[in-house]
Design a binder for these strands. Structure first.
Lengths: 158, 158
DNA sequence: GTTGCTGAGTCTGTCAATCAGACCTAGCCT
DNA sequence: AGGCTAGGTCTGATTGACAGACTCAGCAAC
């Protein structure tokens, strides 16, 4: 009954690496704002309630990691400022955000429902994540997914 | 050009609530282990390198929040111990895990690829997340998703 | 029957991160 | 000159992460 996973190393696990970026308390909340079109420091700060210092840190980290980019803009009658926009890497976080949103809506929402949904640009229908295997089968139940070592798996040493 | 999102409150945002659970550095890594069939304290500790204290905290928090349950078991010649198993709520995190894995594999993997994949139990094909709208359209590009207020949205006061 | 092992923790002290609140700054406007 | 605004920094108190030592219950070997 020893789990097979024990034989494999986790040093190069991409979930752990992803969580180094996404796994800080406010990162995904900040990204939610950017996905919502809120791109400016003070708007984010007021909406999320994240302390200035932390917000500055997170934004800098996300820029450094390539999830956001910092772009200059200038409104008439103001000096130049910067706003934060998603890079391609950042845009590809939509599925993660939608997955978290779906889970949160199911288990943590108030009775009246979720305050935020994701819609399909073309038809307006609500967007959800679905698990599907490479042969096109829909994977309906969580139990139908089984983990297995991938091409980068390494046997454990020690 | 003021983003519409600024008019809506975020106090009941389900992403923020979900991140209260998932958004700590090690939570998803711990869950990865459980999904992999590693259910015991010491196995997790050795594999993940999470400090004992933190692991104990995370497990207790996940049990308290209903993501894991603590089950007694007994191996012959040993006293009774406990292991950690996913609840229904926990199993429903598969899409989140697969989404994070997919993103990590794309942007953060070593050249030889990911050490872990998710497979379809029936056919063995690799499982990925897909965005799909409620009318069945596949949402191919991230830009085709647009956020919008949901049923629980509240106007901002102040 | 004492010594040792094992799994699953707790205790302690150090060091880093979070947070709230005040302060700073560049350019614009009056 | 004085005030406003966006986007920050600086400071000090609290909280969390972490490593390493210690605990504790039951089995097992000497």
């Amino acid at each position: 009954m020893r789990p097979a996973a024990l034989d494999w190393s986790v040093e190069n696990c991409t979930i752990a690496r992803a969580m180094e970026i996404l796994g800080e308390r406010w990162t995904l909340v900040v990204l939610r704002e950017v996905f919502n079109g809120v791109r400016r420091f003070d708007d984010m700060r007021v909406r999320t309630g994240v302390p200035r210092q932390v917000l500055a840190n997170r934004l800098a980290m996300l820029v450094e990691r390539g999830v956001l980019r910092r772009e200059p803009y200038r409104e008439p009658g103001s000096r130049e400022r910067h706003e934060y926009r998603l890079t391609g890497m950042g845009l590809d976080l939509w599925p993660v955000l939608v997955a978290v949103l779906g889970w949160g809506d199911r288990y943590l929402a108030d009775p009246e429902g979720s305050p935020l949904t994701a819609a399909h640009r073309d038809c307006g229908g609500e967007v959800r994540v679905e698990l599907r295997c490479e042969r096109g089968h829909e994977v309906a139940r969580p139990r139908d997914v089984v983990p297995r070592p991938g091409p980068g798996a390494r046997r454990r040493t020690g």
